[in-house]
């Protein structure tokens, strides 16, 4: 008889403890979420900076060097869109053939439009009259090279 009573008591105690632990777990989750929210800054994670490659042709009076073209693009971008956009865009002429005037500019993907507009607005490079024609935007340098070799302009 006493064993039965003892078993029932144990069962009741375990039930009470189980309920208490469930309640405490709920409370803990609420506190955990509160602390996590306090620690978070509320900013979205910064995405990976992807690159784009813009193939262009520089139609100039005479031959111009890669440095001249890069400087011309940078100056035009600073003039029309300011230094802050220039820093974010960070255009770099990574390939340039002086004989054909064709080349590739690397740029951050979010600012490709700024670069294309700038290429059209660039009128002088290395002290010579120039017209820079954007041909194609690609995501890989390999494809940019292919377009560069196939381009007819």
């Amino acid at each position: 008889m006493s064993l039965e009573v003892f078993t029932v008591l144990l069962l009741a105690t375990s039930m009470v403890l189980l309920i208490a632990s469930i309640i405490l777990l709920g409370k803990t989750i609420v506190y955990y979420k509160g602390v996590k929210r306090l620690l978070e800054t509320g900013l979205k994670p910064i995405g990976k900076a992807r690159k784009r490659y813009v193939v262009f042709t520089a139609l100039c009076e005479e031959r111009v060097s890669q440095r001249d073209v890069e400087n011309a693009i940078s100056e035009t971008m600073k003039k029309h869109y300011g230094v802050s956009i220039y820093r974010k865009t960070s255009p770099q002429v990574i390939l340039y053939d002086e004989s054909t005037g064709r080349g590739v500019v690397r740029v951050l993907h979010a600012y490709t439009s700024y670069l294309i507009a700038t290429l059209g607005l660039t009128k002088r490079a290395g002290g010579r009259n120039c017209l820079i024609v954007p041909i194609k935007t690609t995501g890989t340098l390999r494809k940019a090279r292919e377009i560069l070799s196939k381009s007819k302009i």
């Binding site: 139609l59 029309h80 869109y81 294309i116 507009a117 700038t118 059209g120 009128k123 009259n129 017209l131």
Partner: peptide
């Protein structure tokens, strides 16, 4: 007035949109 003052149409569209 001169050839280098022409603007590529695609660049023109981007310029109009941005500026």
């Amino acid at each position: 007035t001169h050839w280098h003052e022409l603007i590529h149409p695609y660049s023109l569209l981007k310029f109009l949109k941005l500026s």
